[in-house]
């Protein structure tokens, strides 16, 4: 890989930090604080899910048959691969391999796009058959509380989808900056932070998938 051709932009450490290492550690600690805030944010939804699954177990089993676990499984594979490519992107930034970095970032972006398309297909089938929150619910079901499951389903997956979109925006911004050669072994903090955020989004889907699709 001809590194000497691709020149890198030298990073300027912020005035209130002693050195780049100090700045990197502060950024990472701040990112982890942000991640636990996200965990508790989604945690509230998981609490609601567990409580209503405990209150209406039979309804949850019957309602989840309307979800296609094949599409859910496909989405899981998409997100896990995008998590892998993101980790590889961070690694290639650490070793200043600019082209590999851009390649992996683009791959992550594409898998995320794939995830959103599959989600769009899923949502359209639900809306078409009327399995929606109570206001527009016209699906069929043997339980009165059926719309509750779909209220939860749309809130959890919708919020997660929103976070995937935000992630895609961040990755696109990363691609632009890596093109300008800003990320190299002495400064790759943004790539690492977006990577952490992306892995968290994948983490949440890892729990969402079995809970919603595989009630069994």
């Amino acid at each position: 890989m001809t590194t000497k051709v691709t020149q890198f932009v030298k990073h300027q450490v912020a005035h209130h930090f002693d050195n780049a290492e100090h700045e990197f550690d502060a950024a990472k600690l701040g990112m982890w604080a942000f991640l636990i805030q996200e965990i508790l944010f989604f945690g509230g939804l998981f609490v609601a899910y567990f409580i209503f699954r405990a209150m209406y177990p039979a309804m949850f089993v019957e309602a989840h048959h309307h979800l296609s676990w094949q599409l859910g499984g496909l989405n899981t594979i998409f997100l896990i691969t995008s998590s892998f490519t993101m980790a590889m992107a961070v690694r290639s930034a650490q070793v200043s391999q600019k082209n590999k970095l851009i390649l992996f970032l683009v791959l992550t972006f594409l898998f995320a796009g794939g995830f959103m398309c599959v989600k769009y297909v899923e949502y359209m089938t639900k809306i078409h058959h009327g399995y929606l929150p109570a206001k527009w619910f016209f699906g069929t079901g043997t339980f009165d509380t059926e719309p509750l499951f779909f209220g939860l389903y749309f809130t959890m997956t919708g919020l997660h989808g929103l976070h995937v979109l935000i992630g895609m925006g961040l990755i696109a911004w990363l691609i632009i900056r890596s093109n300008r050669g800003e990320f190299h072994k002495d400064y790759y903090t943004p790539v690492e932070m977006v990577g952490l955020y992306w892995h968290l989004v994948d983490l949440i889907w890892i729990f969402l998938f079995p809970l919603l699709y595989l009630i069994g």
Partner: peptide
């Protein structure tokens, strides 16, 4: 008394 307009199967 959960009253929801679910059309039963």
């Amino acid at each position: 008394g959960v009253k929801v307009p679910v059309r039963h199967a």
